[in-house]
Simulated assay, not measured.
Amino acid sequence: MIAAARLVEAASRLAGRATVVVVTVMTVVMTVALVLQVVFRYAFGQALSWSEELALLMFTWTVLLAGSLGVREGFHVALTLLPDRLGPAGRRWLERLILLLVTGFGTYLARSGWEFYDGTTGQLSAAVGYPIEFLHSAAMVSGGLVTLHGLARLLATFGPPAEARP
């Protein structure tokens, strides 16, 4: 079990690093597309036909991928009223339950994303003309990453507490 947990953690760490790079690049592309849209509209009186669609594509992927990073890094907002009232053992079991639910949600998101992706296969975006599956695969990929990161964090709760780890 320990070897499997290490493998899942290594995959989660690698996926997390790659996700940071992809989110950064997509954020830059989105920002450039929006700046160009504003410049062309107000400086030249011509709206670009592709910039809004590209920005929406980048925004969708960025939000969903960054959400998966939130699971990996644990930076989502959390209410601590109940965990603060529990002892260390109770807190650990509550954390496991929450991570199990998060992992289940990621699996559901990936499966639902696949169904949506599959149902829209063959369509093209209106302005740019890219395969619409690229937009619709964001939920599937994000769900897979949420599942991976949630599972890695869940398995880590069965090792020594974070305070005891070197």
Rank of each mutant, 00 (worst) to 15 (best):
M1K: 02
A4V: 09
A4F: 06
R6W: 01
R6P: 00
A10L: 01
A11G: 01
R13L: 14
L14S: 08
A15W: 03
T19L: 09
V21M: 10
V21R: 07
V21L: 15
V22M: 09
V23H: 07
T24E: 08
T24G: 15
T24Y: 13
M26I: 11
V29P: 03
M30E: 08
A33P: 09
V35E: 02
F40H: 05
F40V: 01
Y42L: 08
F44D: 05
F44L: 13
G45V: 10
Q46I: 08
L48M: 08
L48K: 01
S49A: 10
W50Y: 08
S51Q: 07
M58G: 04
M58R: 03
M58K: 04
F59Q: 04
T60V: 12
T60A: 14
W61Y: 11
T62F: 04
A66P: 06
G67P: 10
V71H: 11
R72G: 00
E73S: 15
G74H: 07
G74P: 06
V77S: 06
L79D: 14
L82W: 05
G87F: 08
A89L: 12
G90S: 09
L94E: 09
E95H: 05
E95L: 09
L97I: 02
I98E: 01
L99N: 05
L101P: 13
L101W: 12
G104V: 13
G104H: 12
F105T: 12
G106C: 14
Y108S: 15
L109H: 02
L109C: 02
E115R: 05
E115H: 03
E115L: 07
Y117C: 08
T120V: 07
T121Q: 12
G122H: 06
G122M: 07
A127K: 02
Y130M: 13
P131N: 01
P131A: 02
E133V: 10
E133C: 01
E133S: 11
L135D: 13
S137I: 15
A138G: 15
A138E: 13
A139D: 01
M140Q: 07
S142R: 05
S142E: 06
L145T: 10
L145M: 14
L148Q: 05
H149Q: 11
L151W: 03
L151R: 04
R153N: 15
F158C: 01
G159E: 02
P160W: 00
P160S: 01
A164C: 03
R165S: 09
